Amino acid sequence: MESTAYTGSTRWDELVVNRIAINEPLQWLSKGWQDMRDAGRYSLAYGAAIVLISALITYLLYVTESQFLLPFLVAGFFLIAPFLGIGLYQMSAHLERGESLKTCNAVEAWKRNHTHISMITGGFLIIMQLWIASNYVLFSLLYEGISPPLDNFFENVFLSEKGRIFTIASIMVGFFFAWWAYMISVITVPILIDRKIDGFTAIRLSVKSVLKNMPAMMLWAFMIVLIVGIGLVTYYIGLLIALPLIGHASWHAYRALVPPS
């Protein structure tokens, strides 16, 4: 496939997506599990790399006494997770075609449509920065200084009256960012590495897939949050399995939602 993507536009009513059953995400998860087993060490190594990066970021937050940002970086993790799985989508594509995984990597996937994948990834990094910045603003409105005292951080943030206000406001802001990010990214990257298509058309296909299959896609969003959330609360160890599972399953979500070109 050529690395330069088609940049033409497709009208909304010309975008074709499939209608799926509400329990379809369970099949994606099953197929994702099978891909993870077939990929073996390649899939687990990919998950391990993300676990190590997550642990390093957390360590740096504690070293710089910025651990008050940790809950919001965890929430922001869900915003960029679709792009962290690019190598996993590529593995599933190779398995689908019966090809070897020895030369399969994220760079290969990125090269297929590097201009538009880079553009979309940059956009979501900006969204994540806006999410973090919004929490800085909320902190500055409720506390003196850049953050609450670290000696009783949990009590100040989550149990005090100010903390409850902050938590409610943060959840509302986070839900706004997360839902829109989910709609425009749920199958965008798999589309871009599989088809000669521009980024805006891929985003619109993703949004239309969600709007046309709202019950099933809400279930899929819940499953993603639950599985990745378990990985996060197990001190990231669970991400070793959770991220590859969701990444491979997301490839099958794309295959189910968008008809063959």
Rank of each mutant, 00 (worst) to 15 (best):
S3E: 03
S3F: 11
T4R: 15
Y6W: 15
G8H: 13
G8C: 13
E14N: 12
V16E: 03
I20A: 09
I20Y: 03
I22A: 14
N23P: 08
N23W: 15
E24F: 07
P25K: 05
P25Y: 13
P25H: 11
Q27F: 04
L29S: 04
S30L: 12
W33S: 11
Q34P: 02
D38E: 12
D38W: 08
A39S: 13
G40W: 06
Y42G: 04
Y42P: 02
S43W: 02
Y46P: 01
A49R: 01
V51W: 00
I53V: 14
Y59M: 10
L61G: 01
E65K: 09
S66A: 15
Q67I: 01
L69I: 07
L70K: 07
P71F: 11
L73E: 07
V74T: 09
F78V: 10
L79H: 13
L79I: 14
A81P: 02
F83D: 01
L84K: 00
G85V: 04
G87C: 04
M91C: 08
S92N: 02
S92T: 03
S100F: 14
K102R: 15
K102L: 13
V107R: 11
E108L: 14
E108T: 14
K111V: 09
R112A: 14
H116Y: 12
I117K: 01
M119I: 09
I120Y: 09
G122R: 10
G123F: 12
G123C: 08
Q129G: 00
Q129T: 01
Q129M: 03
W131K: 08
I132E: 00
A133V: 05
V137D: 04
L138Y: 00
F139C: 02
S140A: 12
S140R: 15
L141G: 00
S147A: 05
P148H: 05
D151F: 03
D151W: 08
F153S: 02
E155I: 01
F158C: 04
I165R: 07
I168F: 06
A169I: 07
S170L: 07
S170K: 03
I171C: 04
V173T: 15
F177I: 00
F177Q: 03
F177T: 01
W179G: 10
W179N: 09
V186K: 14
I191Y: 09
I191V: 06
I193W: 12
D194R: 08
K196A: 07
F200P: 00
L205T: 06
L211F: 07
K212Q: 10
M214W: 14
A216P: 11
M217N: 10
M223H: 09
I224W: 04
V225R: 03
V225H: 06
V225K: 12
V225A: 06
L226K: 10
V228C: 10
L232D: 01
T234S: 08
T234M: 01
Y236E: 04
I237S: 13
G238H: 13
I241N: 11
L243D: 07
P244S: 10
I246D: 12
H252G: 00
A253D: 08
A253W: 09
Y254F: 11
P259K: 03
P260G: 09
